[in-house]
Design a binder for these strands. Structure first.
Lengths: 197, 197
DNA sequence: ACCTGAACACCGTTCAAGT
DNA sequence: ACCTGAACACCGTTCAAGT
């Protein structure tokens, strides 16, 4: 039970993000939702961005946990990877403003600290899913795991971000991002050819 | 020579985006840069977002032109595609705040209209580069052009967006996005295998 | 047709006190 | 240690006039 003010403020900010997007998260609205004065949050967070970073860190942790569940609760490595990817997409669709906070907000990345560390952990948990598929030969084994993970992560993020931004129009072949995800998994599911010129 | 106020306002907004990011683009700062009163912009644009959309549309047009140049000025289709990709990455790095406006800003997509039309044109110009590579057999020909274009576009956007957001840490294999771009081109440069289970 | 000055409601942040 | 009320500078937007 998170009863302390700090925790309540984070929850209130997350709720406002879901309901009205980033611009709805004013320090004053957060404070009023918790029932404290408009400047009480400054006793717990340095400024508005620090409060947002706390939400992002919480969500990154939840995403890491989802990847870990995907790893253990599925029959095959490929099924696990697909479950992790599905969880990632579902999170973005359910919490668009919060998703953007994690992966795109430029104000939040520079402050480094614990959020950056958690970002690396979450990425690593996704990498485990990729590595298992390589060991299983369902994904090309002669590409470095880290690079293959980076490629999949970036593609996934690009697809989700374009959809959330309203840029994934059907006319672009982006009407259904699951189709493109399936395509990339199919194309990566084979030995890499040697470099061509 | 764009001397009318509307054009000057767009240029001033673009400059402020480059120099101080989205939050530096206040209607008042734009107006003062052009030398008009703080509310004069409302005679030319419905609101702040309409002004930003005008910047985005200008940049989408420039990107379309870059793709078209890449198509004609290079020896091989693959060289053309690579040039288009390089122009895309360079634009994102040079104008990060403006890049985000085109591809991520959720407030701008919903207003539809001319910006959306230009977005489709720009995407189509990129698709031509992909199609030429398929015809040339440097990219897998047995995948629909539209889907292959969507995959490459999304991957490219994901890589650039993560870098601009400061999320492309070397520890994630994302320290050098050109490496991942080269990897995906290599992996796509072969016939697609049939679906696996 | 285009511009200006005044005004409104709102915001992030700070400060001096209060318990 | 935590909270409050008042205050400051700033912002997007609107309105009644001016030329």
């Amino acid at each position: 039970m998170v009863a302390e003010t700090a925790g309540q403020l984070v929850n209130a900010a997350a709720r406002l993000l879901d309901e009205g997007g980033l611009k709805a998260v004013t320090v004053r609205a957060v404070a009023s939702l918790v029932g404290v004065s408009h400047n009480a949050p400054y006793r717990h967070f340095e400024d508005r961005n620090a409060l947002l970073a706390a939400v992002a860190e919480m969500d990154l942790r939840a995403l890491e946990a989802a990847f870990q569940r995907a790893k253990t609760r599925h029959a095959s490595p490929l099924a696990g990877l697909r479950a992790g990817i599905a969880a990632f997409i579902a999170y973005g669709r359910k919490h668009p403003a919060r998703y953007r906070l994690l992966f795109s907000d430029p104000e939040l990345a520079s402050r480094g600290g614990t959020m950056e560390v958690q970002g690396l952990r979450t990425f690593a948990a996704f990498g485990v899913l990729v590595h298992q598929c390589q060991a299983d030969a369902t994904l090309s084994a002669n590409v470095e795991t880290k690079q293959l993970t980076a490629l999949l992560y970036a593609t996934l993020h690009g697809l989700v971000d374009l959809e959330l931004g309203g840029r994934a129009r059907p006319a672009k072949g982006l009407g259904d991002i699951e189709t493109i995800v399936a395509l990339v998994l199919r194309l990566l599911g084979q030995p890499a050819p040697t470099a061509r010129r």
